[in-house]
Amino acid sequence: MYFRITLLRSSIGLPLKTSQTLSALGLKKRMATVYHPVTPDVAGQIMRVKELVDVSEVAAPKTKAQMKAARRPDPGYYVEKKEYVAKRGDGEWRKLYEVGAVMGETVGRDDA
């Protein structure tokens, strides 16, 4: 289990120990989120900055890319089919409409 810790309030003007605890936790800016395993050490660190952070317990940590993907809004469309590519006789890759094939068929595709 992991703690998901989000910095909500800045430590500007607070005792040095508070800012140092935040940087030890890896929180550099407001609204930054970090994941740390549930241990007494981490709980003690959170205890020191309890007024500044939001904490929840989660099963698995998220990577930076996953957190960014979760923030991304719905694009409003989805791709039904990918454009097929076919290999010509001379070994060069061409789009299907160029070789005149019908959609849905894989023509001359080696790794398909």
Binding site: F3, P40, G44, I46, M47, V55, E57
Partner: peptide, 22 residues
């Protein structure tokens, strides 16, 4: 703050641990 404290203590309690500060 109450919510943060209860989250910490319940998470530690699942591992049968606790800290004196809490």
């Amino acid at each position: 703050v109450d919510h943060v404290i209860s989250t910490l203590s319940s998470a530690l309690a699942k591992q049968a641990k606790s800290i004196r500060k809490i």
